[in-house]
Amino acid sequence: MTEVEMRTVTFILNGKSTTVKVDPEKPLLWVLREDLGLTGTKYGCGMAICGCCTVHLEGDAVRSCVTPMSRVEGKRVTTIEGLSHDFSHPVQRAWMELQVPQCGYCQPGQMMSAACLLAQNPKPADTDIAEAMSGNLCRCGTYQRVRKAIHLAASLLIERGVAE
């Protein structure tokens, strides 16, 4: 059995410089959950299909279960814990207002995708939402509340003056 070569990887995690010594091929998801204790990001399929593990890498909604640490070196990563420090992000406010989750397991991924969508398209139409959220599966079927919450978050963004 060959020994895995560990490497020091430094990246910006939720705004703070973070250094870990890991196998560079280890998925970001497991570094977040096991090495750094940030368990908000969930493991779903491990195949980049379900979207549970979605985090932001340089603003893009990547699947952390298939993203190796070698790709993360020097980059900005935002997890559900870093969306805001006081639950003030419009997506968080909308999710709470409309009580979106049922079991809740997929919701961190849903919220990270929603935040990514709104950052690129502050006033999405239903078709934009259906398209952008098609990579996030919810076995409870909260899709309609997710869509409603994204519209609400968009209006909160406008109120906050970010979108316009």
Binding site: L117, N121, D128, E131, A132, G135, L137
Partner: peptide, 28 residues
């Protein structure tokens, strides 16, 4: 299956569904 993927202007995908959100620099 299931994913509503779209080319986008630069061919890299759009919004939350960019190709390299899942595809890495080598095969899994």
């Amino acid at each position: 299956t299931g994913l509503r993927l779209r080319r986008g202007p630069d061919g890299q995908g759009v919004f939350t569904l960019k190709c390299t959100n899942c595809h890495q620099s080598q095969n899994h």
